[in-house]
Amino acid sequence: MNNKVLYVEEKEIQNELASIRNLMERSSKFISLSGLSGILAGIYALAGAALAYNIIYNHIPVADSESTNNDLSATGLLSGHSFSMLELKLMAIAFVVLVLSIITGIVFSLRKAKRKGQPIWGKTSRSMLFYMATPLFTGGLLILIFIYRGHYSIIAPASLIFYGLSLVGASNFTFNEIKYLGLCDVLLGLVTACVPGYGLLFWAIGFGVLHIVYGSVMYFKYDR
């Protein structure tokens, strides 16, 4: 009989320890990030990069119906005072990819949080957003400033580096794996800075391929 009492006791203790571990994890980590949204964001980025590639390389031939005066748009591109049709199109693509990714991320996180019965807007998600937003806004503004001054080559490396840094910052508050995605993006950004002219390719790898790889890992590890 004594044995039975002890057995019950042990079960109870183990439950207690499990609930403590769970609470420590839940209270300090935002675990509603969904792997699927990572995969989708990667697909949007790849599609956007493909579209951008098409536009750029169809734009180069002299027969251009969009801008009547090619010389003018070329000087505009260098001095940074006016934006050519090409630049506007590329910016529109980048913007659409960004907005779609954010919306997908939010929708999937909401869904996962609801399924697991967790509050999505808590102390942890607030801190996570703050630590993500700081490098993201710094990088975004820096890139805009450089675009205005005509330094286009900074777009690809800087966006990769600052995005990577924001992920490393966010990793304190969520799955640890996101740190490695961030570090890869930072490295890739530095490489991109060394080999000008391949910005779009590296951008597609960093935002497209890496996201898909990361999203799949997360999906198989946590979502199912």
Binding site: E16, S19, I20, L23, M24, R26, S27, S28, P119, G122, K123
Partner: peptide, 26 residues
Amino acid sequence: NRLRLQIMSVLVVNDRYDFNSLKELL
């Protein structure tokens, strides 16, 4: 008490935690 242990486990991994977040979590 189980709740006390739970409160403590939240407070050891977080610098600070506010009342309402604790209430929601627990």
